[in-house]
Design a protein around this nucleic acid. Structure first.
Length: 573
DNA sequence: TTAGGGTTAG
């Protein structure tokens, strides 16, 4: 009877202090030996995030059953004590307690959160040893762990051999693909629907995220419709994911509509919307939103400042950016980290204030990474500072010798300066070190289908028409003053061949296809996996003027809106 | 007592 009333009391506890009172009574009335009561106490401590109380209680318990171990391991797993989580799991094995379908997901989740693939594999062996692979909870967590550790093939193998899959398992697999192969993520979502599963809100957030990663506007519209038709409420997580989706699909206006429709917003929603304006070069809108956020009594975090500084630098709002950078620690107690410094280097770089950028790097106390040097190198390329470029490049190649993109960037700088012997040296270096350049791809959506182009691609059924259109457009552009910029071709070939290669860049092929298949008046939307090359950028600007078409390009870094001969990036990217 | 969801620098 005493035990029952203790448990009843626990359910009324609103604060950890109340749990401690019940705990004291349990000790007085000697109900501590009742495992049900002790386990409940442990569970409630964990629920109230009082991990130290839980840990003490766990140590004092004279008896433990599988529930005791699971609740404790679950507590360590959720509340960040990964070392304790692993240690307690090892204790389980040492004591000969059989790990069950409650304990294992907690430990696997810790491996996932820490991206601890090796430990994850060891736990997988334990799962097999105890024949628990058929359990939905265990298997779904293993799939999730492999996917988050970026071992997507292992995740998929496990997923494929599962005899019966539930909604959570599908969602985990779809979410796993979102980061490394968003296209497959959407294919899997369609398959899940075909198999009769009805997605819930978490599944929808996952697929929204995949649309954002892919930049697939037609799918984004479909998902939006589905969400509205099925009455999903726009909570803070779904709303934020949709803001991000529309922004990354190239439609910042739709992102803002979602933002305005949301009844509740937190710092993540505001930051996502500020970042959205940043990608699209809308610095003033980002600044206005930041002030609105402050007026709504939401405090900015480090990500808000990254998004804000990014928006300032990409819109050329140098002084605003510097003001925010200088005030973030003083006024908002947000300490600048490497990402903020990189934005400021970019900010100075765009303004041609290379000495200040270099000085900032010299005096900063934060550990420098490759993206910081890359920002400086990019600025040197635009402003033609060879001396500083070599310094930045050396630091960059020291940190990241295996990234061919760095060699390409540097040889572009040498090419621009006419130092052809250096360009040749770098070309040889790429070959000798057997560095593989990431192949460039461009995607375009036409009539709800996604088409993919590579350089010189002739695989499209309308290939002849695409090439004819491209050549006719190039002739028109040449009459308007377009001169192909062959410095962007790294291969050591004759000028005419260089021209030929430039003319068939994947982006130009996709634009030509857009011109013949997308009605006049509608924008041509394309996505690239790499940064847009300088010549394709000039080409796109001229097409927007000569052909009177609006072109929206999402590259690896940002969006470019081409209209009437100009680009929203202001020719700096 | 168990599994799945949102923002960030080149």
């Amino acid at each position: 009877m005493v035990a029952q009333s203790c448990v009843r009391l626990l359910y009324t506890c609103r604060h950890v202090f109340h749990i401690r009172q019940v705990h004291a009574n349990v000790l007085i009335y000697g109900t501590f030996n009742d495992l049900v009561v002790a386990n409940k106490l442990l569970y409630f401590y964990v629920q109230h995030k009082a991990i130290d109380d839980a840990h003490h209680l766990f140590d004092e318990m004279p008896m433990r059953d599988p529930t005791t171990w699971s609740v404790m391991i679950g507590g360590f797993s959720k509340l960040g004590g990964y070392a304790n989580c692993y240690a307690t799991f090892r204790e389980i094995l040492r004591y000969g307690v059989t790990p069950d379908n409650y304990t294992l997901p907690f430990v696997i989740r810790t491996c996932r959160d820490r991206k601890d693939f090796q430990m994850g594999q060891m736990i997988h062996d334990v799962v097999l040893k105890h024949g628990l692979l058929l359990d939905h909870f265990v298997c779904a967590t293993l799939v999730d762990m492999y996917a988050k550790c970026m071992v997507i093939e292992d995740a998929r193998r496990l997923f494929d051999i599962m005899l019966s899959k539930d909604l959570v398992t599908w969602t985990v697999m779809i979410g796993g693909y979102a980061d490394c192969n968003a296209y497959e993520s959407l294919v899997l979502f369609d398959r899940m629907m075909e198999e009769g599963f009805v997605p819930d809100k978490v599944a929808m957030v996952t697929v929204v995220n995949a649309c954002a990663k892919l930049g697939a506007m037609h799918k984004a519209r479909f998902v939006n419709e589905y969400i509205c038709r099925n009455g999903f409420s726009l909570d803070v997580i779904l709303g934020t994911a949709m803001i991000d989706m529309y922004a990354k699909c190239g439609c910042v206006e739709s992102a803002r509509e979602v933002f305005d429709r949301m009844k509740e917003r937190n710092v993540i929603s505001w930051s996502a919307m500020i970042a959205a304006y940043g990608y699209h070069g809308k610095g003033k809108e980002a600044l206005d939103l930041f002030h609105m956020m402050l007026n709504s009594a939401i405090l900015p975090n480090r990500i808000t400042f990254v998004s804000l500084l990014y928006a300032c630098s990409h819109a050329g709002l140098i002084e605003d950016g510097l003001r925010f950078f200088n005030s973030m620690w003083e006024d908002y107690a947000v300490r600048p980290d490497i990402k903020h410094y990189t934005c400021v280097v970019d900010l100075f770089g765009r303004a041609g204030r290379l000495d200040e950028a270099a000085k900032l790097i010299e005096t900063m106390s934060v550990v420098k990474d490759e993206r910081l040097w890359s920002a400086l190198l990019g600025a040197c390329r635009i402003h033609g500072n060879m001396e500083l470029a070599e310094k930045a490049a050396n630091s960059l190649l020291e940190l990241q010798p295996q990234n061919p993109g760095n060699y390409v960037l540097l040889s572009n700088i040498y090419a621009k300066a006419g130092k052809w012997e250096k360009v040749a040296e770098f070309r040889d270096m790429i070959n000798q070190r057997k560095l593989k350049k990431v192949p460039g791809w461009t995607w375009i959506e036409v009539d709800n289908e996604t088409y993919q182009f590579s350089v010189g691609d002739r695989s499209h059924p309308q290939s002849n028409e695409i090439y004819e259109t491209l050549m006719s457009v190039i002739r028109k552009l040449e009459m308007a003053g377009y001169v192909p910029d062959t410095e962007f071709v790294l291969q050591d070939v004759e000028d005419e061949v260089k021209k030929e290669m430039l003319y068939t860049h994947s982006e130009k092929l996709a634009i030509a296809f857009g011109l013949i298949s997308i009605p006049q008046g509608d924008p041509i939307r394309i996505s690239k996996n790499l940064r847009v090359c300088g010549d394709c950028h000039t080409f796109s600007k001229m097409v927007s003027a000569v052909m009177r078409r609006s072109i929206i390009v999402r590259d690896a870094n940002r969006f470019h809106h081409f209209n009437e001969g100009t680009c929203s990036c202001g020719d700096y990217w």
